[in-house]
């Protein structure tokens, strides 16, 4: 069964690009536009990987990571945070919250797949 990835971003452009790339590599993708909605998705079923943006309305990415880690059902789900190149402090904050790794925006599709492969191979 295809692994299921949740991509969380308030930008539809970003969600579309992540989603398109992952689907092309055989993943099943679900989308959410902020942290709160991501949690709703997680309540309704398990995912194998979460890729989340940091700056989002309602609930930001770092808070989302903390929340996910605090839930038994997804405590061990890998989480990648999307940061920009200058976001060293964001990487650190994400890491501290329990993120597995990060992806630097903007990314090429194969780079995204490479990173995903490191934490959640297809």
């Amino acid at each position: 069964m295809a692994k299921r990835i949740l991509t969380v971003d308030d930008s539809k452009t970003m969600r579309d690009m992540v989603s398109y790339t992952l689907k092309g590599a055989g993943f099943e993708v679900v989308e959410a536009e902020d942290g709160v909605r991501a949690l709703t998705v997680l309540q309704s079923g398990k995912v194998d990987l979460i890729i989340t943006d940091i700056n989002m309305p309602n609930m930001d990415g770092v808070t989302l990571v903390k929340r996910v880690r605090s839930q038994p059902s997804h405590a061990a789900t890998p989480i990648l945070i999307l940061t920009t190149e200058s976001g060293e402090d964001k990487k650190a904050a994400g890491k501290a919250a329990g993120a597995t790794g990060w992806i630097v925006k903007p990314f090429a599709p194969d780079k995204l797949l490479q990173v995903v492969n490191k934490v959640c191979p297809a």
Binding site: D10, T13, M14, N55, P57, L82, T84, P106
Partner: peptide, 15 residues
């Protein structure tokens, strides 16, 4: 909110 708007535009523009 302003930060997020600018940030989103930047991220997309980068892509």
């Amino acid at each position: 909110a302003i930060f997020r708007a600018v940030h989103s535009i930047k991220a997309g523009a980068g892509a």
